[in-house]
Write a protein that binds this DNA or RNA. Structure first.
Lengths: 146, 146
DNA sequence: GTAGATGCAAACACTTTGCTATAGC
DNA sequence: GCTATAGCAAAGTGTTTGCATCTAC
Protein backbone atom coordinates (compact mmCIF):
# COMPACT_ATOMS: atom_id res chain seq x y z
CA UNK A 1 0.00 0.00 0.00
CA UNK A 2 2.95 2.26 0.42
CA UNK A 3 3.88 2.08 -3.20
CA UNK A 4 0.70 3.43 -4.66
CA UNK A 5 1.07 5.96 -7.41
CA UNK A 6 -0.19 8.58 -5.00
CA UNK A 7 2.87 8.97 -2.88
CA UNK A 8 5.48 8.82 -5.55
CA UNK A 9 5.72 12.58 -5.76
CA UNK A 10 5.81 12.87 -2.03
CA UNK A 11 8.59 10.37 -1.71
CA UNK A 12 10.63 12.37 -4.18
CA UNK A 13 9.77 15.58 -2.41
CA UNK A 14 10.98 14.20 0.88
CA UNK A 15 14.25 13.17 -0.58
CA UNK A 16 14.73 16.52 -2.19
CA UNK A 17 14.00 18.33 1.05
CA UNK A 18 16.01 15.99 3.22
CA UNK A 19 12.91 14.72 4.95
CA UNK A 20 12.62 11.17 6.02
CA UNK A 21 9.92 9.06 4.51
CA UNK A 22 8.02 7.47 7.33
CA UNK A 23 4.98 5.24 7.33
CA UNK A 24 2.96 8.00 8.94
CA UNK A 25 3.78 10.51 6.25
CA UNK A 26 3.09 8.03 3.55
CA UNK A 27 -0.30 7.27 4.96
CA UNK A 28 -1.34 10.83 5.58
CA UNK A 29 -0.27 11.79 2.09
CA UNK A 30 -2.10 8.85 0.66
CA UNK A 31 -5.28 9.77 2.47
CA UNK A 32 -5.09 13.40 1.44
CA UNK A 33 -4.30 12.73 -2.16
CA UNK A 34 -6.82 9.98 -2.47
CA UNK A 35 -9.60 11.67 -0.57
CA UNK A 36 -12.59 13.02 -2.30
CA UNK A 37 -14.16 16.17 -1.03
CA UNK A 38 -12.45 18.53 1.35
CA UNK A 39 -11.55 16.71 4.54
CA UNK A 40 -10.51 18.58 7.65
CA UNK A 41 -7.62 17.44 9.80
CA UNK A 42 -9.83 15.41 12.08
CA UNK A 43 -11.19 13.51 9.11
CA UNK A 44 -7.76 12.90 7.69
CA UNK A 45 -6.69 11.66 11.09
CA UNK A 46 -9.64 9.29 11.26
CA UNK A 47 -8.99 7.91 7.81
CA UNK A 48 -5.29 7.57 8.43
CA UNK A 49 -5.95 5.82 11.72
CA UNK A 50 -8.12 3.32 9.96
CA UNK A 51 -5.25 2.47 7.65
CA UNK A 52 -2.63 2.44 10.34
CA UNK A 53 -3.39 2.87 14.00
CA UNK A 54 -0.12 4.53 14.87
CA UNK A 55 -0.64 7.97 13.46
CA UNK A 56 -1.11 10.86 15.82
CA UNK A 57 -3.04 14.06 15.31
CA UNK A 58 0.13 16.06 15.67
CA UNK A 59 1.72 14.16 12.84
CA UNK A 60 -1.28 14.76 10.66
CA UNK A 61 -0.97 18.48 11.31
CA UNK A 62 2.73 18.39 10.58
CA UNK A 63 2.37 16.38 7.41
CA UNK A 64 -0.45 18.51 6.16
CA UNK A 65 1.76 21.52 6.62
CA UNK A 66 4.55 19.91 4.61
CA UNK A 67 2.20 19.05 1.80
CA UNK A 68 0.68 22.47 1.81
CA UNK A 69 4.04 24.21 1.76
CA UNK A 70 5.05 22.04 -1.15
CA UNK A 71 1.93 23.06 -3.02
CA UNK A 72 0.65 19.50 -3.20
CA UNK A 73 -2.51 20.22 -1.29
CA UNK A 74 -4.44 23.39 -0.78
CA UNK A 75 -6.00 24.74 2.36
CA UNK A 76 -9.54 26.03 2.35
CA UNK A 77 -11.72 27.62 4.94
CA UNK A 78 -15.36 27.39 4.20
CA UNK A 79 -16.41 29.31 7.24
CA UNK A 80 -16.86 26.51 9.71
CA UNK A 81 -13.77 27.39 11.70
CA UNK A 82 -11.58 24.53 10.67
CA UNK A 83 -9.18 24.17 7.80
CA UNK A 84 -10.09 21.83 5.00
CA UNK A 85 -7.71 20.37 2.47
CA UNK A 86 -7.81 19.31 -1.08
CA UNK A 87 -5.24 17.88 -3.43
CA UNK A 88 -4.07 20.37 -5.99
CA UNK A 89 -4.68 19.17 -9.48
CA UNK A 90 -4.42 20.59 -12.93
CA UNK A 91 -8.08 21.34 -13.14
CA UNK A 92 -8.57 24.43 -11.08
CA UNK A 93 -12.03 24.98 -9.74
CA UNK A 94 -13.97 27.14 -7.35
CA UNK A 95 -16.57 26.16 -4.82
CA UNK A 96 -20.27 26.51 -4.44
CA UNK A 97 -21.32 25.69 -0.90
CA UNK A 98 -24.86 24.67 -0.08
CA UNK A 99 -25.58 26.65 3.04
CA UNK A 100 -28.20 24.18 4.21
CA UNK A 101 -26.41 20.91 3.68
CA UNK A 102 -22.80 22.17 3.67
CA UNK A 103 -22.32 20.18 0.50
CA UNK A 104 -19.54 21.57 -1.64
CA UNK A 105 -19.91 21.66 -5.40
CA UNK A 106 -16.84 22.27 -7.46
CA UNK A 107 -17.09 24.23 -10.63
CA UNK A 108 -14.89 25.77 -13.22
CA UNK A 109 -15.68 28.76 -15.31
CA UNK A 110 -13.10 30.03 -17.78
CA UNK A 111 -14.65 33.46 -18.06
CA UNK A 112 -14.31 33.81 -14.33
CA UNK A 113 -10.69 32.78 -14.36
CA UNK A 114 -9.87 35.30 -17.04
CA UNK A 115 -11.70 37.99 -15.15
CA UNK A 116 -9.72 37.34 -11.99
CA UNK A 117 -6.46 37.76 -13.83
CA UNK A 118 -7.74 40.86 -15.49
CA UNK A 119 -8.79 42.44 -12.23
CA UNK A 120 -5.52 41.72 -10.50
CA UNK A 121 -3.60 43.12 -13.44
CA UNK A 122 -5.74 46.22 -13.43
CA UNK A 123 -4.54 47.03 -9.94
CA UNK A 124 -0.95 46.26 -10.83
CA UNK A 125 -0.83 42.86 -9.21
CA UNK A 126 0.22 39.44 -10.29
CA UNK A 127 -2.36 36.95 -9.15
CA UNK A 128 -0.72 34.44 -6.85
CA UNK A 129 -3.72 32.78 -5.38
CA UNK A 130 -7.38 33.35 -5.01
CA UNK A 131 -10.49 31.98 -3.55
CA UNK A 132 -14.02 32.20 -4.76
CA UNK A 133 -16.67 30.62 -2.65
CA UNK A 134 -20.30 30.98 -3.51
CA UNK A 135 -22.79 30.24 -0.79
CA UNK A 136 -26.18 29.34 -2.10
CA UNK A 137 -29.48 27.76 -1.35
CA UNK A 138 -30.98 25.20 -3.62
CA UNK A 139 -33.81 26.51 -5.73
CA UNK A 140 -37.17 24.88 -5.24
CA UNK A 141 -37.50 23.10 -8.61
CA UNK A 142 -37.61 19.36 -8.54
CA UNK A 143 -34.10 18.64 -9.62
CA UNK A 144 -33.10 15.12 -8.70
CA UNK A 145 -29.82 15.00 -10.59
CA UNK A 146 -26.42 16.59 -10.08
CA UNK B 1 -21.77 60.50 20.83
CA UNK B 2 -24.51 57.99 21.17
CA UNK B 3 -26.80 59.73 18.72
CA UNK B 4 -24.59 59.61 15.71
CA UNK B 5 -26.24 58.57 12.52
CA UNK B 6 -24.30 55.33 12.73
CA UNK B 7 -26.23 53.65 15.44
CA UNK B 8 -29.71 54.63 14.45
CA UNK B 9 -30.32 51.36 12.67
CA UNK B 10 -28.87 49.42 15.50
CA UNK B 11 -31.04 51.13 18.06
CA UNK B 12 -34.10 50.24 16.01
CA UNK B 13 -32.85 46.72 15.55
CA UNK B 14 -32.43 46.24 19.28
CA UNK B 15 -35.94 47.40 19.95
CA UNK B 16 -37.32 45.12 17.30
CA UNK B 17 -35.46 42.15 18.70
CA UNK B 18 -36.19 42.95 22.31
CA UNK B 19 -32.55 43.66 23.00
CA UNK B 20 -31.54 46.33 25.40
CA UNK B 21 -29.56 49.23 24.11
CA UNK B 22 -26.52 49.55 26.30
CA UNK B 23 -23.61 51.92 26.12
CA UNK B 24 -21.33 49.06 25.25
CA UNK B 25 -23.40 47.96 22.32
CA UNK B 26 -23.71 51.49 21.08
CA UNK B 27 -19.99 51.96 21.16
CA UNK B 28 -19.06 48.69 19.56
CA UNK B 29 -21.55 49.31 16.80
CA UNK B 30 -20.24 52.80 16.32
CA UNK B 31 -16.69 51.55 16.05
CA UNK B 32 -17.60 48.82 13.61
CA UNK B 33 -19.75 50.95 11.40
CA UNK B 34 -17.36 53.84 11.43
CA UNK B 35 -14.19 51.82 11.00
CA UNK B 36 -12.29 51.83 7.81
CA UNK B 37 -10.60 48.69 6.69
CA UNK B 38 -11.37 45.30 8.15
CA UNK B 39 -10.72 45.31 11.88
CA UNK B 40 -10.51 42.12 13.85
CA UNK B 41 -12.14 41.73 17.24
CA UNK B 42 -9.04 42.79 19.09
CA UNK B 43 -8.87 45.98 17.11
CA UNK B 44 -12.52 46.72 17.66
CA UNK B 45 -11.98 46.12 21.33
CA UNK B 46 -9.03 48.51 21.40
CA UNK B 47 -10.95 51.22 19.60
CA UNK B 48 -14.02 50.75 21.75
CA UNK B 49 -11.90 50.87 24.88
CA UNK B 50 -10.47 54.17 23.78
CA UNK B 51 -13.96 55.59 23.53
CA UNK B 52 -15.21 54.03 26.72
CA UNK B 53 -13.04 52.08 29.10
CA UNK B 54 -15.75 49.79 30.31
CA UNK B 55 -16.17 47.47 27.37
CA UNK B 56 -14.98 43.91 27.68
CA UNK B 57 -13.72 41.58 25.00
CA UNK B 58 -16.61 39.24 25.63
CA UNK B 59 -19.06 42.01 24.95
CA UNK B 60 -17.30 42.88 21.73
CA UNK B 61 -17.62 39.28 20.63
CA UNK B 62 -21.26 39.20 21.59
CA UNK B 63 -22.09 42.46 19.91
CA UNK B 64 -20.24 41.54 16.78
CA UNK B 65 -22.31 38.40 16.63
CA UNK B 66 -25.53 40.36 16.93
CA UNK B 67 -24.50 42.73 14.18
CA UNK B 68 -23.40 39.92 11.97
CA UNK B 69 -26.61 37.98 12.47
CA UNK B 70 -28.54 41.09 11.62
CA UNK B 71 -26.59 41.47 8.42
CA UNK B 72 -25.21 44.84 9.44
CA UNK B 73 -21.64 43.74 9.32
CA UNK B 74 -19.93 40.97 7.45
CA UNK B 75 -17.33 38.54 8.64
CA UNK B 76 -14.24 37.88 6.60
CA UNK B 77 -11.33 35.56 7.00
CA UNK B 78 -8.33 36.56 5.02
CA UNK B 79 -6.30 33.62 6.09
CA UNK B 80 -4.60 34.99 9.16
CA UNK B 81 -6.62 32.92 11.56
CA UNK B 82 -8.78 35.62 12.99
CA UNK B 83 -12.13 36.96 11.90
CA UNK B 84 -12.29 40.41 10.42
CA UNK B 85 -15.35 42.54 10.09
CA UNK B 86 -16.67 45.13 7.78
CA UNK B 87 -19.86 47.14 7.64
CA UNK B 88 -22.18 45.99 4.94
CA UNK B 89 -22.99 48.78 2.56
CA UNK B 90 -24.82 49.12 -0.71
CA UNK B 91 -21.66 49.06 -2.70
CA UNK B 92 -20.67 45.47 -2.72
CA UNK B 93 -17.04 44.77 -3.37
CA UNK B 94 -14.52 41.98 -3.32
CA UNK B 95 -10.99 41.96 -1.98
CA UNK B 96 -7.54 41.91 -3.40
CA UNK B 97 -5.02 41.11 -0.69
CA UNK B 98 -1.38 42.03 -1.08
CA UNK B 99 0.37 38.91 0.15
CA UNK B 100 3.48 40.83 1.10
CA UNK B 101 2.00 43.77 2.95
CA UNK B 102 -1.39 42.28 3.90
CA UNK B 103 -2.95 45.43 2.53
CA UNK B 104 -6.50 44.87 1.38
CA UNK B 105 -7.75 46.59 -1.74
CA UNK B 106 -11.45 46.65 -2.34
CA UNK B 107 -12.76 46.45 -5.84
CA UNK B 108 -16.00 46.05 -7.65
CA UNK B 109 -16.49 44.50 -11.02
CA UNK B 110 -20.01 44.26 -12.44
CA UNK B 111 -19.10 41.54 -14.90
CA UNK B 112 -17.87 39.45 -12.02
CA UNK B 113 -21.04 39.97 -10.06
CA UNK B 114 -23.17 38.92 -12.98
CA UNK B 115 -21.03 35.87 -13.51
CA UNK B 116 -21.41 34.74 -9.92
CA UNK B 117 -25.18 34.89 -10.19
CA UNK B 118 -25.05 33.06 -13.45
CA UNK B 119 -22.91 30.28 -12.10
CA UNK B 120 -25.06 29.75 -9.02
CA UNK B 121 -28.16 29.68 -11.18
CA UNK B 122 -26.57 27.17 -13.51
CA UNK B 123 -26.27 24.71 -10.65
CA UNK B 124 -29.79 25.39 -9.46
CA UNK B 125 -28.85 27.62 -6.59
CA UNK B 126 -29.90 31.02 -5.41
CA UNK B 127 -26.82 32.96 -4.47
CA UNK B 128 -27.07 33.92 -0.82
CA UNK B 129 -23.57 35.03 -0.15
CA UNK B 130 -20.16 34.76 -1.66
CA UNK B 131 -16.59 35.62 -1.16
CA UNK B 132 -13.94 36.37 -3.67
CA UNK B 133 -10.48 37.07 -2.40
CA UNK B 134 -7.62 37.54 -4.76
CA UNK B 135 -4.15 37.20 -3.34
CA UNK B 136 -1.55 38.98 -5.37
CA UNK B 137 1.91 40.38 -5.45
CA UNK B 138 2.62 43.87 -6.67
CA UNK B 139 4.12 43.87 -10.12
CA UNK B 140 7.41 45.59 -10.55
CA UNK B 141 7.54 47.91 -13.50
CA UNK B 142 10.92 46.73 -14.59
CA UNK B 143 10.48 43.05 -14.30
CA UNK B 144 13.50 41.17 -15.62
CA UNK B 145 12.24 37.72 -14.71
CA UNK B 146 10.25 36.24 -11.92
C1' DG C 1 25.39 6.66 14.73
C1' DT C 2 22.95 10.78 13.96
C1' DA C 3 19.66 13.90 12.38
C1' DG C 4 15.22 14.11 12.13
C1' DA C 5 10.32 12.18 13.19
C1' DT C 6 6.80 10.58 16.36
C1' DG C 7 3.62 10.82 20.24
C1' DC C 8 2.07 12.89 24.04
C1' DA C 9 0.61 16.53 26.58
C1' DA C 10 1.11 21.18 27.48
C1' DA C 11 0.83 25.59 25.34
C1' DC C 12 -1.45 28.64 22.10
C1' DA C 13 -4.66 31.86 19.79
C1' DC C 14 -9.13 32.85 19.05
C1' DT C 15 -13.80 32.45 20.54
C1' DT C 16 -17.70 31.06 23.47
C1' DT C 17 -20.06 30.48 27.83
C1' DG C 18 -21.61 29.98 32.98
C1' DC C 19 -22.34 32.76 36.66
C1' DT C 20 -23.24 36.77 39.55
C1' DA C 21 -23.70 41.53 39.93
C1' DT C 22 -25.73 45.19 37.43
C1' DA C 23 -28.47 48.07 34.45
C1' DG C 24 -32.15 48.86 30.89
C1' DC C 25 -36.92 49.24 30.35
C1' DG D 1 -39.12 44.56 39.55
C1' DC D 2 -38.19 41.61 35.99
C1' DT D 3 -35.28 40.36 32.38
C1' DA D 4 -31.46 40.86 29.71
C1' DT D 5 -26.55 42.30 29.79
C1' DA D 6 -21.73 43.04 31.29
C1' DG D 7 -17.65 41.44 33.10
C1' DC D 8 -14.77 38.06 34.42
C1' DA D 9 -12.69 33.87 34.24
C1' DA D 10 -13.15 29.28 32.99
C1' DA D 11 -14.02 26.22 29.22
C1' DG D 12 -13.91 25.12 24.23
C1' DT D 13 -11.89 24.50 19.61
C1' DG D 14 -8.62 24.12 16.34
C1' DT D 15 -3.71 24.21 15.91
C1' DT D 16 1.19 24.35 17.28
C1' DT D 17 5.19 22.99 19.97
C1' DG D 18 8.71 21.21 23.66
C1' DC D 19 10.59 17.16 24.93
C1' DA D 20 11.92 12.38 25.41
C1' DT D 21 11.87 8.39 22.68
C1' DC D 22 12.32 6.13 18.57
C1' DT D 23 13.43 5.40 13.53
C1' DA D 24 15.03 6.15 8.78
C1' DC D 25 18.97 6.55 6.45
Amino acid sequence: MSNSAFDFDFEALCQKKGLKMTDQRRIVAQVLLGAQGHPDVEEVYAMASKLDAKVSLATVYRTVRILEDAGIIQKHSFGDGRARYEAVSDDHHDHLIDIDTREVIEFYNPKLEALKQEIAAKYGYTLIDHRLDLYGRRKKHTDPEC
